[in-house]
Design a protein around this nucleic acid. Structure first.
Length: 500
RNA sequence: GGUUUCGUGGCCGAGUGGCUAGGCAGCGGUCUGCAAAACCGUGUACAGCGGUUCGACUCCGCUCGAAACCUCCA
C-alpha cells in the first residue's frame, strides 16, 4: 500500500509517478460526449475508465475535481462541408431547436451513465455556456500573435507556432508530414496553411447556432472549448487530462498549442488516453455503421447480439481489459464476462454470510500479528500494486477471483480463515469490487416478469395439492400469499391472483 | 505514404529476461436424491525468421498480418 501510483503519460510515453501539483487536490479533465446521438459502447469506455480513476484517486485520499464537458456546439462536420456543426445539422433535419437536440441526448447520456454506475463528475460544463470564455481565449491567442483573422473567421497559425514550439509532440507527428499529407482537402482556401485549424468560424446565413464575437456572428472552433473550460475550472496548470485515443490528434494536440499560445505554457501534467473498442477487429464508429448503442445492449435488440447484456456486464467486460488496450467485442466474450461477474457477486454474498457466522480459527487469538504475511494480506498488497501500476484493473479482478476461491473454500469448510483476515477480505471486496471498480448487484430489469413467473409456479404447485385434496398445503399457500397482500381466488376455470 | 499501437493456448484477456496470471469453454474427479453451484486436478500459448544472452514469449532487427490516427468519431 505504500508503493507509489504510476500512471502512463501519453506525452512522455512512459509510466510516471503521480505527483499532483497541489496536493491533496487533484484536477482531472476528460473530454465528454458530443450530444447529438444516443450513447453507444464507445462512450462507455472512457466514462468507465475515468470513473474508475476518479474513484481510486478519491480512495487514495485526494480531493479530486473532475470536470467532464458536454459538447453541444462547435464540432464542425468538416471543413469541406459548409461549416455546419453536427447538432445544427441534426436540428434542421428534425425541425427542432438545436438546444432541444442537445438537451435530449444529454439527458439520455446521463440515464445510461447512471445505469453503468458512472459517478457524476464534479462539474459538467457545456460548451454553449462558455462562449465568452472561448472568445476571450481566441483573443489571447490573437494577441500573442499565433492566430489570424480572415473574413470574420479566426485560425490558429500552426506554421508560426512551430517556429517557436513543437506542434505534434503529443501525437508524434511532424509538421512537414502533415502539410504534405493534407493537400487533398478542399475548402481550406481561407487558411494560410492546410494544417491550421479554426478557432472561430463565421456563420453562414442558414447556420442556426451563432453567437456575436469581435470578428463575426459565428461559433467557436472545435478545440477551443476544452482549453477554455479546463482553464476556467482547473486553472492554467492542472494534473490529468483524459480522453479516447482517437482524440490525440488533432484535438488534444491543438489544445496543447492553444494553451501554450494563450497562457504561455502548457496546461496539462499527465495525459491519459483510453484505447478503442473494436467489433470483429474493427473500430466501432458511426461512419462504419457497426456501432451498438447502450440501449441496444441493455435490451438485446441489436441484430449482432445474441441476448441482452446488463449494464454491470458491460462495465465488467470493459474493466477486464486494461484501459490502454483495444478491447474486442463478441457475444462469446460478453457471455464469459457475464458468468464471471455472477461468480464474483455470488462469492461476495457468501462472504457476508461468513462474517455473520463468526468464523473462528486458532490464528484469530493472536490479533494483529495474524494479518501480516497471511494470504489475504498478500492479496490486498497485490491488488494495490496492480492499481498503482497504471490502474491495472484486469489484475485487480484476477486477484479478486483468488479471493473468490478462498471464500468458497471456507464456505465449504475446506479452509479456515482468521477473524482478522475475514475482516480484511470483506474490506477488500467492499473497497475494490464495489467502491473502485464500481460494480453492483444488477437490479432485475423487469420485476413484473419475475413476479409473474414466480406466481405462475406457486399457483401450479397449489393446483397440484388441490387436485390431490391436500388442503393443508393449498391453504398454507393461500394464507401465506394473503399476508403478502396477494389475494388468490379459486374460480371454475382455475385460480387467479392479484395484489391488493 | 506518414505517425502510433498490436499479434499470447478453443474464446476473452494480464504479465515477466529463468519461477502458476485470471475468466469463460472443454476433459477427469470430489460432493450431491437428481440437477446446479462449489472445490481439486488437467493444456509442451506466446505470428514467422534471424540476432544479443548461460538462458527470450519478454531485448534488438527484419518479414508477414491487424488496427487506430493523419477527415467528424470515445
Amino acid at each position: 500500500m505504500e508503493n507509489q501510483l504510476l500512471i502512463h503519460n501519453t506525452i512522455t510515453r512512459r509510466k510516471e509517478r503521480f505527483e499532483p501539483i497541489n496536493p491533496p487536490f487533484a484536477g482531472m479533465y476528460v473530454c465528454g460526449p458530443t450530444v447529438y446521438g444516443d450513447p453507444h459502447l464507445g462512450h462507455a469506455r472512457p466514462a468507465i475508465t475515468f470513473d474508475m480513476i476518479f474513484r481510486y484517486l478519491q480512495h487514495l485520499g485526494y480531493k479530486v475535481r473532475y470536470v467532464r464537458n458536454i459538447t453541444d456546439v462547435g464540432h464542425l462536420v468538416a471543413d469541406l462541408d459548409d461549416g455546419d456543426d453536427k447538432i445544427a445539422k441534426k436540428a434542421r433535419v428534425e425541425q427542432l431547436e438545436p438546444m432541444e437536440i442537445a438537451q435530449y441526448y444529454a439527458d439520455r447520456y446521463f440515464v445510461y451513465m447512471d445505469a453503468l454506475n458512472v459517478k457524476r463528475p464534479s462539474i459538467e460544463p457545456r460548451a454553449s455556456g462558455h462562449i465568452i470564455e472561448q472568445i476571450l481565449m481566441v483573443q489571447q491567442i490573437l494577441d500573442a500573435g499565433f492566430g489570424y483573422e480572415v473574413n470574420g473567421s479566426v485560425y490558429f497559425d500552426v506554421e508560426k507556432y512551430s517556429t517557436k514550439y513543437e506542434y505534434g509532440k503529443l501525437s508524434g507527428r511532424v509538421l512537414d508530414d502533415l502539410i504534405s499529407n493534407t493537400r487533398a482537402l478542399e475548402g481550406t482556401e481561407e487558411k494560410r496553411h492546410s494544417s491550421d485549424f479554426a478557432l472561430w468560424k463565421k456563420a453562414q446565413p442558414e447556420h442556426i447556432m451563432r453567437w456575436p464575437s469581435p470578428w463575426s456572428d459565428g461559433f467557436p472552433g472545435w478545440h477551443i472549448e476544452c482549453s477554455a473550460m479546463s482553464t476556467k475550472y482547473l486553472g492554467k496548470y492542472f494534473d490529468i487530462h483524459g480522453g479516447g485515443m482517437d482524440l490525440l490528434f488533432p484535438h488534444h494536440e491543438s489544445e496543447i498549442a492553444q494553451c501554450q499560445a494563450a497562457i504561455g505554457h502548457e496546461s496539462v501534467k499527465y495525459w491519459l488516453h483510453n484505447n478503442m473498442i473494436t467489433i470483429n477487429g474493427q473500430k466501432m464508429g458511426k461512419s462504419l455503421g457497426n456501432f451498438i448503442t447502450l440501449d441496444e445492449f441493455f435490451t438485446g435488440t441489436h441484430p449482432s447480439l445474441q441476448q441482452a447484456y446488463g449494464p454491470m456486464t458491460i462495465r465488467f467486460f470493459i474493466l477486464q481489459a486494461h484501459y490502454r488496450s483495444t478491447l474486442d467485442f463478441s457475444n462469446e466474450a460478453l457471455q464469459a464476462a457475464d458468468k464471471g461477474l455472477k461468480k464474483l457477486m455470488a462469492a461476495s454474498e457468501t462472504l457476508n454470510k461468513l462474517i455473520q457466522n463468526e468464523v473462528q480459527s486458532p490464528v484469530s487469538e493472536t490479533g494483529q500479528e495474524a494479518l501480516t504475511g497471511s494470504p489475504i494480506f498478500d492479496l490486498s498488497n497485490s491488488i494495490y500494486a496492480a492499481m498503482n501500476d497504471d490502474f491495472n484493473s484486469p489484475m485487480v479482478i484476477a486477484n479478486l477471483f483468488e479471493g473468490v476461491r478462498i471464500i468458497n473454500s471456507v464456505a465449504d469448510k475446506k479452509e479456515t480463515i482468521s477473524v482478522n483476515d475475514l475482516k480484511l477480505l470483506k474490506n477488500i471486496f467492499n473497497t475494490f469490487l464495489f467502491d473502485i471498480l464500481g460494480l453492483r448487484y444488477e437490479k432485475s430489469n423487469d420485476q413484473r416478469e419475475l413476479l409473474d413467473g414466480l406466481m405462475h409456479l406457486v399457483i401450479a404447485i397449489r393446483q397440484n395439492s388441490r387436485e390431490t385434496k391436500d388442503w393443508g398445503t393449498s391453504d398454507q399457500i393461500r394464507d401465506a400469499l394473503q399476508k403478502l397482500n396477494i389475494i388468490v381466488k379459486d374460480e371454475k376455470e382455475g385460480s387467479t391472483w392479484n395484489i391488493e
